[in-house]
Simulated assay, not measured.
Amino acid sequence: MMAPPRGGHPVALLSEVPSLQNAPGVGVNTSFDVTNKLAVKSSAVLFDNIGHGVQFKVNKSADTDTASLLYQTGYSGRAEMGLCGDDNFHLKTSADGSTWIDGIVQRTLSIQNSGDVNDSSSGAGLDHDYSLAFSIPPNFLRAGRAIRVSAHYRVTVGSAPPLLTHKIKLGSVIVGQTGGYTPNPGETNVQAAVSWLIQAIADPSGASGIECALSSIPSGVGSATNTSVTPMPVLVPTNGVLALEVSTLWASAGTGVNQIKLSQLIIEALN
């Protein structure tokens, strides 16, 4: 039954309008299909606010799925941005809709600043686990996935500094360690950086294989061994939350003030 016309057009009663709750699909000026449950054919679409901000949410089921905005010409993809097959943000383009080139991939997991100091006078002979740590989610380190960890330090040493060692840990397991080296005597607040590459070689489990390589060594403060002295692979429980942390070790107290401060910790997913 139709209500009386308004302006020459009949108006449907509310009782005759089908419910949109759990509707199989909605088509506005077009028809929806099995894939496109909501289809709109229009020169513009407006999502307005109700007095506050507004969000448009695109949710995916697993990190290997895709949640993105796809831009097309003639229904053939030309540009896409979003979480494309992983949890990194991608902006990519295609000339034909099949071959894609990543223009931007935002992979940084964490950037943290610190002022935590390892002083040889109080910490000689002990691992100093810096307070900065990053929690790697369960099952994130699947086979082939790699991350880069960069630790930036400031080093001050006396006239006879002791040997210094850098380590990186996943949980309680040391997955990488430099050979001990002696910083240059008399340095004050010298910048030093150590970078590690960590790659999973097996799918997540309670004892999954991890390989770790030292990709850059401290510069300007001495000469460290450009290899990790930890035998590979290392087995770690990648099916649970893993605390990633870096540590340093002074072999002895040495002479004078010997300190190494963690200034910044940067963690990036590479794929």
Rank of each mutant, 00 (worst) to 15 (best):
N29I: 02
S15P: 06
D33S: 03
V45M: 09
A23M: 08
F32W: 05
L38G: 14
A62S: 13
V17Q: 04
S31N: 11
A12H: 09
N36Y: 10
L13I: 12
V26I: 15
K41Q: 05
I50V: 02
V11K: 01
F56C: 12
S42A: 13
L13G: 14
Q55E: 14
S42N: 10
F32M: 03
L20M: 13
N59M: 11
N29E: 13
P18T: 06
A44L: 11
G25M: 05
I50M: 07
G25N: 03
G27E: 02
N49M: 11
A44S: 14
S15R: 07
P24G: 02
A44N: 12
N29P: 04
K57G: 05
G51T: 08
N36E: 13
V17S: 10
P10E: 08
S19Y: 08
F56K: 06
L14T: 02
N36F: 05
K41L: 14
P24A: 12
S43Q: 11
L38R: 06
V40K: 00
S31I: 15
N29T: 05
D63C: 05
G27Y: 00
V58R: 00
A23P: 04
T30S: 06
S61N: 12
V54K: 00
F56R: 05
P24F: 04
L20T: 08
D63P: 09
S43V: 15
V34S: 12
P10A: 11
N49C: 13
S61E: 11
S61P: 01
S61Y: 09
H52V: 07
N36P: 05
L38D: 13
L13M: 13
E16P: 09
A12E: 12
V34Y: 02
L13W: 13
N29R: 03
P10K: 00
F32R: 01
V11E: 07
D48R: 01
F56G: 14
F32I: 15
V58G: 07
V11Y: 04
Q55R: 06
V40D: 01
A12M: 12
K57A: 07
F32D: 08
A44I: 15
S61H: 12
A39G: 02
A23V: 00
I50P: 07
K60W: 11
S61T: 15
V58C: 06
V11I: 15
S61A: 14
V40R: 01
S43Y: 12
A44H: 10
N49G: 10
S31K: 02
D63Q: 07
V17E: 06
D33Y: 05
N49F: 02
V26P: 09
A39F: 01
Q21P: 00
N59A: 11
L20W: 12
A62C: 08
K57W: 08
T35P: 09
L20E: 03
A23R: 09
G51E: 13
F47R: 05
G27L: 08
V40I: 15
K41V: 15
V58T: 08
V28A: 12
L20N: 03
S42I: 14
V54Y: 00
V54L: 06
P18R: 06
V28G: 10
A62R: 13
S31P: 01
P18Q: 08
V17I: 15
D48Y: 03
A44W: 10
G27K: 01
G25R: 00
S15G: 14
